[in-house]
Design a protein around this nucleic acid. Structure first.
Lengths: 223, 223
DNA sequence: GCGTGTCTGTCACCCGTTTGTCACCCGCCC
DNA sequence: GGGCGGGTGACAAACGGGTGACAGACACGC
């Protein structure tokens, strides 16, 4: 599942991101409110974690804006003892809250619960057509073939493509999704990753039938 | 769509940003010229709103620099009564202008118009008459014929002509829209591009039936 | 701690496609 | 005839995707 983590505290943000990634989630990070909204619009996450105190726009404003456009689950991060903030957040449509400090274990439990409540159990294999991903096993199965083991990056790339199965995904977006940041110039990384993935999943890597190069990026052919 | 808003007046900047976000756009904000260029490079916005009076670099300079690198639509924000500034801005390649003060409604209408003109209001296939463009696949289909693959430039040219289907578009405008920079003398580029496009889409390239030469430029015959 | 194997980032290179540029053609008009 | 502007063919440079090689980073078992 794709999770948007918005917190202006870089250390905490990285800790959360790391914890979620370890659990097999894709993470999009934002350091302030506007960035959170930007990524929300661009990435379409399945879950949003929002700190209340952020520069630019507060978590409240971000939550409100998101709620005006989507019913994606939103979890607020609050400092203990600011109950009035909490009430306000829930009133704005937030689904859950977590008081700092919290343990990674607590975080994961709450995230899992929230995703389950939203009907997106995170361990369910992603699938489209003849392609199915097993996020826990880090494997992909195509048609009747044996499941193939994937590395972390390969898994993320496939996950992104699978989420847009049949449609081209542009390289910039893939770079952001798979590596997190990296502005422009890193096409080479993507080339290599695609190459390595093709070696694993294509019957004939020289003539890709599944992971095709499209005019505007790469796409998955699922039939 | 992602919009870069550059204005040194923080209040106005926030108002514009808010208005655009309400309309579903992603907004990147800049308070001066250098920041605008920095964000332009990093974010790759689909539209740029530029105030003329900004510290660091003026809107003129920013516009010129952007035009040297991109054909992204640029809208200038001017104070009423400074027509000479306006003329200068349009000469530098700006696509539209807005005189302050303006209402949010006006702003949105202009932004929408500009994005439509630039052919990016959606990735849905553009069509007019028997001609339809698939922006994702980079193909064009004319009548019942097989879709034809287009290069990046051919696609842009066709997109511009299709946006004005049935009417002639003058060469200056096409040069700016397709190549972004290149003020005057580069007719030859356009000639070649038209030639190559005709080879691909015309049944008889020597007697063009679709992409016709008109008195004032080129036009697409769509019926 | 240490070796081992895997994963990832980076480099150099190949090759087909795309693009920019030049020379030249033709028809038209003064 | 000569200038002008559009159309055409040819060619070289630039670009971009694909590939193999390699070294450092990393995880893991001992």
């Amino acid at each position: 599942m794709k999770v948007l983590v918005a917190d202006d505290d870089a250390d905490l943000r990285e800790l959360i991101a790391f914890t979620l990634m370890q659990a097999g989630h894709l993470v999009v990070k934002a350091g302030d409110g506007p960035a959170a909204l930007r990524h929300f619009g661009a990435e379409g996450p399945d879950l949003v974690l929002l700190d209340i105190n952020m520069p630019g726009l507060s978590g409240f404003q971000v939550c409100e804006t998101i709620r005006a456009r989507s019913r994606v689950p939103v979890m607020m991060l609050t400092v203990r003892g600011e109950e009035e903030d909490l009430v306000r957040a829930l009133g704005l449509g937030a689904d859950d809250y977590l008081t700092k400090p919290f343990s990674p274990r607590t975080l994961l439990a709450r995230v899992k619960a929230l995703l389950r409540r939203a009907g997106m159990e995170s361990t369910a294999p992603l699938a489209a057509g003849r392609i199915s991903l097993d996020l826990e096993e880090h494997t992909v199965r195509i048609g009747a073939a044996e499941p193939v083991r994937l590395t972390k990056l390969e898994l993320r790339l496939l996950q992104m493509l699978l989420a847009n199965a049949g449609h081209a995904v542009n390289p910039e977006r893939l770079l952001i999704q798979v590596w997190g940041h990296r502005s422009g110039g890193d096409r080479q990384l993507l080339k290599q990753l695609v190459h390595r993935l093709r070696q694993k999943i294509e019957a004939d890597p020289a003539a890709p039938a599944v992971l095709r190069t499209a005019a505007a990026g790469y796409k998955l052919v699922v039939d």
